[in-house]
Design a protein around this nucleic acid. Sequence first.
DNA 1: GACTCCCTAGAGTATATACTCTAATAATAC
DNA 2: GTATTATTAGAGTATATACTCTAGGGAGTC
Lengths: 235, 235
Amino acid sequence: MSDITTTADMFMKTRDKILLSSLELFNERGERNVTTNHIAAHLAISPGNLYYHFRNKSDIIYEIFLEYEKLVDYYLDIPEDRAMTLDDMTFYLESVFDGLWSYRFFHRDLEYLLDSDSRLRKDYREFTNRCLSAISRIFEKLSEAGIIEEQPDNLRAAMSLNVWLVITNWMAFLKTAHAEETYAALTLTELKQGIYQVLTLEIPYLTPAYRDRVMALRENYRPSLPERRLEGVPV
Amino acid sequence: MSDITTTADMFMKTRDKILLSSLELFNERGERNVTTNHIAAHLAISPGNLYYHFRNKSDIIYEIFLEYEKLVDYYLDIPEDRAMTLDDMTFYLESVFDGLWSYRFFHRDLEYLLDSDSRLRKDYREFTNRCLSAISRIFEKLSEAGIIEEQPDNLRAAMSLNVWLVITNWMAFLKTAHAEETYAALTLTELKQGIYQVLTLEIPYLTPAYRDRVMALRENYRPSLPERRLEGVPV
DNA sequence: GACTCCCTAGAGTATATACTCTAATAATAC
DNA sequence: GTATTATTAGAGTATATACTCTAGGGAGTC
């Protein structure tokens, strides 16, 4: 995957360095805790310089969203000229969680961000709709490929929405489940245990031909030590 | 349901008025957008007065959380002396969404709130565990009652977690799906369409004896006009 | 009346935050 | 070289925010 979290270096344009550092700081500390002055200080540039490149903080966030959107749209581009395989499905899941990870600040303060920028609100709504369509289309193609049973349209739509809810809320859940207070105390590996949860949703719909293979795939993402963190839940 | 959103009146103690008004304002505008000065002004009391009753803003939030916790714990108290009915299940779902509604500010800025108050973080973790246990126990009792098929423990745990993820993320989803920017533009009725999504998770596990009844119940919560808001999703 | 205790007003403060302004420097074009 | 444009520094500002401090009122008790 692209190495998005690399620290900005001296060969980059200031504008790009600002975007990159902002993303890093937002991811580490949360957007709410990162000021424009912090970003400038982090890059050892003046606030004036930062505001030369961006009119305000919202514009920085918006541009980062556009990158995120582009990445996910790229990942969720579904080839229509061939049948879907289990590897495809794995790729989609892995990719979406990679994207979530790289831009993980975004879903944290989502509601506030959308309330402060109506342009972002509009774009994000359309983005959500595209993602929901893609998920639904993936289910359709998985049926065509005989991996999951065919389902009526409205059930597929509701299932797709549940998949979206689980995906977008998994990280928030992990962070609240964590005992540590540091925002950074979360790993990509843990995040990808969300795939286990998503595959859980598919279980009852798997065809006999693929059931065992998908269950084996799911095992790869089984949370390693959930009973220590969630002692109340039977495992 | 308790009429929590009633405006504070002159017969209440100042301390309670502060809690009530804070909750109202937080719910309407989001915690991030409500300052202690706003709360005081709303009640027409001085900031000094407010700080006589509460050491800081976190303490106000913490006390509100304790109320929330108490409410949900009360709702999710599962009677062990009798079998579970469909009505029970409906009651649990309705109650949980009522609770979410009354304290809807809470899940909005959850991560920030937990990061700013380690006491809250700890309590919330335990609260989550209790909720997950309750959900899991509800599934168990639904099996015992012959409403859903019996499932292995680890599947039930994963399913319970998915239910929790859908419940706690449903409101955030609704707000991002809304075109309107106002935080208040959300109704309890819409919120309860989350029940449709939760019941969607149960569908494949329903026993033949109860399948039709649950599907009919689910229809009561079907989103009224999702295709207008989510034009990309087949319905 | 005086003492005490609970409560309240309201001015005030230290700090932070998003953002601006001016002047100067580097880069590029001609 | 010179003119022009792009970029940068850095001090500064208006506003907001969480919270403090002092003074005092009101009610009950002796």
